[in-house]
Design a binder for these strands. Structure first.
Lengths: 213, 213
DNA sequence: ACCTGAACACCGTTCAAGT
DNA sequence: ACCTGAACACCGTTCAAGT
């Protein structure tokens, strides 16, 4: 069975120089990951789908790890955009929705989310742009916290520490869900997410002095 | 360089039949994962270290995935043992220590912890013993919650839901730390863990009625 | 029953060569 | 400057054959 039988997804080598192969490679990687998971992502498959050699990638990325780094960067960009969009310049209610949106992003893009964390990128020095984009997403959370502190809805602890704690909680919920450790039933998941956000908000609320703790 | 130059870790093939090869394979896998990470674990290396062929493993495990399943199972057993030990039949203070012990387990065994979750085992039906052992570890948490509800330290929500929420929080903290998303400085990590447990306990406490939330 | 050794179908990556 | 194609050093897994 010759290579002609494989139906490349885009028009194959119409020009010798590809328009923007770097972008095309990244898009194809995102598509594959979303559709079949990271474990299905091979340089051979990507090349085949784009009608280029499997080594063409090395002109645009240092190696596979660098490609996955770019995938992760894109993921943080998407996630940040979504969080900012949901938060607006809102209050407690929007904060809750932001948490829900975070977990929903992970559920909608489990394999992509796992690439963003999951240690696919963790040996060697982290890509600079990835670090920056990850921090930008985190900053969206910090900003929301700071606003809620100003409106006296959240206790006046170090906002960074608060943000780390909240991030850990939504990250934990997300990971347990996409790893299949929790119920797969949609309604039960929604219940858990809502419950978690409730308990979380009680934990960080600037309430009246308590008699215990 | 012949095979004699590789220095097998245990006495090589003194008998044709290995004593308990299954156990030896599992121990060697645990050792490799702890020392060099999962990505360094290959069937070839394991065989080499034990002085057996690289295919000998297939007499005792269906495939590599089954070996990792056994590794994960062992991990949950260890984790559960540690949690039960720290909890004793304690109170709020011991509950806090249990949370800290959880995160410390993950920090001490990052790669092993990642095998327990991390989706190395998530395609195909989950191993039965793995499921059971994971649930047993979770149950240790549920039991502690139930006890704290009886002593009126924790609010009387569904203990399973509470346990899931708490699990998600400590899991999230653990994952962010071992994925290097948080500070690598020991003291700062300790601060975060303590802070997280404080906020967590406030969130689940059976306090007096609140004016807000 | 348990283990071996060759073979197979995959990987990511390198490198000289082509345009 | 950009891409190819052969080659290399790795994988996990299968299978006939040995003890």
């Amino acid at each position: 069975m010759a290579a002609s039988g494989v139906r490349p997804r885009r028009k194959p080598r119409d020009r010798y120089h590809h328009g923007d192969l770097r972008r095309a490679l990244l898009d194809e990687a995102l598509r594959t990951i979303h559709q079949d998971g990271v474990e299905a992502l091979t340089l051979r498959t990507i090349g085949l789908a784009l009608g280029v050699s499997r080594t063409a990638l090395y002109r645009h990325f240092a190696d596979k790890r660098a490609l996955l780094s770019a995938v992760a960067t894109e993921g943080f960009r998407m996630l940040r955009g979504r969080l900012v969009e949901v938060w607006g310049s809102g209050g407690v209610r929007e904060f809750n929705e932001m948490g829900v949106a975070y977990v929903q992003f992970a559920i909608a893009n489990p394999s992509h989310y796992r690439v963003m964390f999951g240690g696919f990128v963790d040996d060697g020095p982290r890509d600079e742009e990835l670090t920056r984009e990850g921090m930008a997403a985190f900053q969206a959370l910090v900003d929301a916290i700071a606003a809620l502190q100003k409106s006296a809805d959240v206790r006046k602890d170090d906002p960074l520490q608060l943000a780390r704690f909240i991030w850990a909680t939504v990250h934990g919920v997300s990971m347990l869900i996409i790893d299949g450790q929790l119920s797969h039933q949609h309604a039960q998941l929604d219940d858990l997410i809502q419950f978690a956000m409730q308990r979380l908000q009680t934990g960080i609320a600037a309430g009246p002095a308590r008699t215990r703790n």
